[in-house]
């Protein structure tokens, strides 16, 4: 308990919990936009774990002020890498958002289940085979006309 209740312990708890929440959202969310938001959370948790790996207790910020002051610095390498990872993360978000625009334009929906059933039907039509599924399955969901705008 005493070992857990330090700054590093609490921050490791927070970082791993943030990653787990992001992974949970990636696995269970049905809306494509919420999937993107879960990806943002997962990235934030991973960045926090990386910065924590270079943290030294009572260390100073890795800035040279007077050459050799003798103080212990935090590791600057994970900080530089995380600095790059944040910027690349925003680029990944913008790319994912543009892909979501295309999916919304083509399938007219943001629901993963609707998109998956339409995708399977489209692939089966293009390949000239019957769509996968049982003969006993209920009839496919009719498209709502107003949703296609």
């Amino acid at each position: 308990m005493n070992h857990f209740f330090t700054v590093e312990g609490i921050l490791y708890f927070g970082a791993i919990s943030l990653s787990i929440i992001g992974l949970f959202g990636l696995l269970v969310s049905k809306n494509l936009f919420r999937l993107l938001l879960s990806l943002v959370l997962f990235e934030a948790g991973a960045n926090l774990v990386l910065v924590l790996s270079g943290f030294i207790r009572n260390g100073i910020a890795p800035i040279f002020l007077d050459g050799n002051s003798g103080a212990v610095m935090n590791d600057p390498v994970p900080q530089a890498l995380v600095l790059t990872a944040i910027v690349i993360g925003v680029g990944v978000q913008a790319l994912a958002l543009s892909l979501i625009f295309r999916v919304k334009k083509h399938y007219g929906s943001m629901d993963m289940r609707t998109i998956r059933s339409k995708l399977e039907r489209e692939i089966a039509e293009n390949a000239g085979v019957t769509p996968p599924g049982s003969n006993e399955a209920p009839a496919p969901v009719k498209l709502i006309e107003g949703e296609n705008s």
Binding site: V51, F55, Q79, V82, L83, I86, V87, G89, V90
Partner: peptide
Amino acid sequence: VLKAPDVAMTEAAIG
């Protein structure tokens, strides 16, 4: 708090 001021500035501006 983790003594990474450059990462903090980038996260505030970009994140």
